[in-house]
Design a protein around this nucleic acid. Structure first.
Lengths: 200, 200
DNA sequence: CCCCCTCTTGGTTGATCATTCAATCAAGAG
DNA sequence: CTCTTGATTGAATGATCAACCAAGAGGGGG
């Protein structure tokens, strides 16, 4: 097995374990049994558990386009619908996990109370990658939205809606909480589009 | 010292520690050194660490009115302004903690990946207590908002905004992310009020 | 053939974890 | 004075944790 494969296998396993159990509750032993490696091998590629986390966050950051956006936007061209298609993908994840789904980045962002700068920057970079994708859609929507609209702010608001909706759906174990958050955001966009028409 | 005091002291210390470091990262030893108790004393009142968590969540649930709403709404009568006054209180907490603030309930909700039913119900009860307070304000706003408005849904959306805003402000270490979320919600309310006027 | 480097093996270290327990204490009841 | 109760003490337990390390396997180039 090529070394790169081993590294990638560790990251892949860690992505799943951190998502399932969180960072602190995932032990090195968990990681070893999942990857069928010995501790020395793992520590050969990653000097510490923290470095595994860094690898995971880099993988998420670099995979946004391929792993998240591309599947979500399959067959969806309308920019505003793409935003809701992305939210629909999260809905699917919530349903598939019986409402135990948590956004891997959001969960880590709240779990790590004293993250070192590198980790914090990577968490932020993940959020920025996500919101930037939304900003592009808002720009593509052009005149359908008000001229003076704060694209960045609205994009962050979409992320806020997703994270808050996921958190509540998970806590109550009901998708309805996520659905209501999305419905409110839908109303928001409809009102924005309406106000853009009036001005035009 | 009366026994009730010791129990309350443990809960009080645990509230702060869980908020600062999270549940898993707070050790019994942390709790003991903070309360100046011996392990036996703690285990006399709480059979397990989990039971301390239950005590903490009950304290939050029972303290919403006195500890959260009352201070936030001091001198604010307008129902819609009360909603934003509550958000302003969270803003204050964010600033006071140099943008490390995390909602204690939200953080626990995302940190605990396999909470037993009792804990999960208490987390949900805390969210419900919060949103119910918002629902009351929305009802008090009466005709200023659209007749067909989903009060529960909008109240949950306010919570969503708070939680998402807190998460992003904390991750980026900038209040501006919280401010933008609130600004978006403000726009939302303004558009709702405008549409209520048109119909009337 | 040997040297060198990458990678693997798996036992080991010492710290920290939640929890337990027998013993002790103070204070009140009868 | 005796007995009971509730609270407290603090050492001890065994599990689990992240991390370390000496020894060796495997392979490619000289």
């Amino acid at each position: 097995m090529a070394p790169k494969d081993t590294r990638a296998r560790i990251v892949h396993a860690a992505m799943e374990l951190f998502w399932l159990k969180g960072f602190n509750s995932t032990s090195i032993a968990d990681l070893l049994s999942r990857t069928q490696l010995n501790s020395g091998s793992l520590y050969h590629f990653f000097p510490s558990k923290q470095d595994v986390l860094v690898g995971v966050l880099e993988a998420y950051r670099d995979g946004i386009e391929e792993m998240l956006l591309k599947p979500a936007w399959e067959g969806v061209d309308d920019p505003i619908e793409r935003i809701f298609a992305l939210l629909a993908l999260y809905r699917r994840l919530i349903v598939e996990t019986d409402c135990t789904y948590g956004c891997p980045i959001g969960s880590l962002a709240l779990e790590l109370h004293e993250p070192d700068p590198q980790v914090r920057d990577l968490l932020a970079a993940n959020f920025v990658g996500w919101t930037n994708a939304i900003v592009r859609q808002l720009e593509a929507a052009g005149a359908r939205l008000p001229r003076a609209l704060d694209h960045e702010g609205l994009a962050q608001f979409v992320l806020t809606t997703m994270e808050g909706g996921v958190m509540q759906a998970r806590t109550h174990r009901e998708v309805a909480y996520f659905d209501r958050a999305v419905a409110m955001l839908r109303t928001h966009f409809q009102m924005l589009e309406a106000s853009a028409k009036v001005v035009a």
